[in-house]
Design a protein around this nucleic acid. Sequence first.
DNA 1: GTCTATAACTTGATAGAC
DNA 2: GTCTATCAAGTTATAGAC
Lengths: 200, 200
Amino acid sequence: MAESNTTRDRIVNAARELFYEHGFAGASLADILKKAEANSGSLYHFFKSKEELLIAVLELYKDMMQPVLLEPLWKDVTDPIERVWALLGGYRQFLIMTDYTYGCPIGNLALEVGNHLPSARQKIFENFENWRLAVRRCLEDAGARLPGDVDRDKLATFVLTTMEGGVMQARTAKSIEPFDSSVEMLKDYFARLMKAPDRA
Amino acid sequence: MAESNTTRDRIVNAARELFYEHGFAGASLADILKKAEANSGSLYHFFKSKEELLIAVLELYKDMMQPVLLEPLWKDVTDPIERVWALLGGYRQFLIMTDYTYGCPIGNLALEVGNHLPSARQKIFENFENWRLAVRRCLEDAGARLPGDVDRDKLATFVLTTMEGGVMQARTAKSIEPFDSSVEMLKDYFARLMKAPDRA
DNA sequence: GTCTATAACTTGATAGAC
DNA sequence: GTCTATCAAGTTATAGAC
């Protein structure tokens, strides 16, 4: 995992940070090696190309989601609907804390690599899937508080959509307003769903 | 504008296409010049750096929004709410038509350049603003069909959020499903707003 | 305003000793 | 598994003739 200190892990972690800050194309292997305090020979001992290093980074993100993202945010929140807002609140805090410099690392890579690197696209997809499944689980746990005819899966996708679209606009505006506006609309939608009579 | 054929315009247009396909860092000036059938001397006669060329591309996008994006999509649609769906439908068609290879060029650049190029960030912001204002205008034109206490500006932001988040996920999934799910939720939200009694 | 040539540097990747 | 040295190609940007 991330906390161990093998050469391989130092390289992957440095790559994760620099891909996050400068993008995949924008981060050079030289900079990554410098940050990792490692040498070119080590990098190419573990990975056969920069692309393979990216795959390792995306796998690390998958492994990090539960312990690094969800657990701290959900530690003191048991209500499943509140957990959805806590998750969005976490991104909100992070945006403000970093003065809108950093957004969602997966979203960044999603738009940068597009279809150019198929194996990376697949890993990005898996990251989105895990996020969506975590939210869907919350919505399922909400049980009858959401009407039976509300599609939990689609609604979870919509929560991810709101997060990614809101983060993108907040970073561009250097203001939390677009993010807050989007989340406010989403919350209002939830409120209307939850007070509506069950049509099922 | 884009249709003229001066050397400058050919360069800006080639840059627009290659930044779209490969990103700002991923598109080289050599490739841009080759596509534009122009030489390095011409490029640096008009622009003092690659970054300045990006600014020109972002200004072109601003100029293109009305005639190239909105006008064709809204030509046969007069109902203001339907115009919102026509706009989202245009992106939907484009995603499918390009097999999820291309998304929103502004969204791509928004996440790639972040805060690294402040003047570019400003232009990206202006592009988002124009898009949001066009949608807000639709919502305002809908008049009393939306309850008076619905914030048109925030709702327009939320439409843009839905578009960008949906496009991101559809490209990653190589499937229209996440986009359709998101738009379906947004439409349901609109339906609930529009049938709700005016609380104002 | 357009051309060619090229500077100055960085890129991803490799070779081979230890 | 880690090191140094290095390659070949590509990068942005410039110089100066026309």
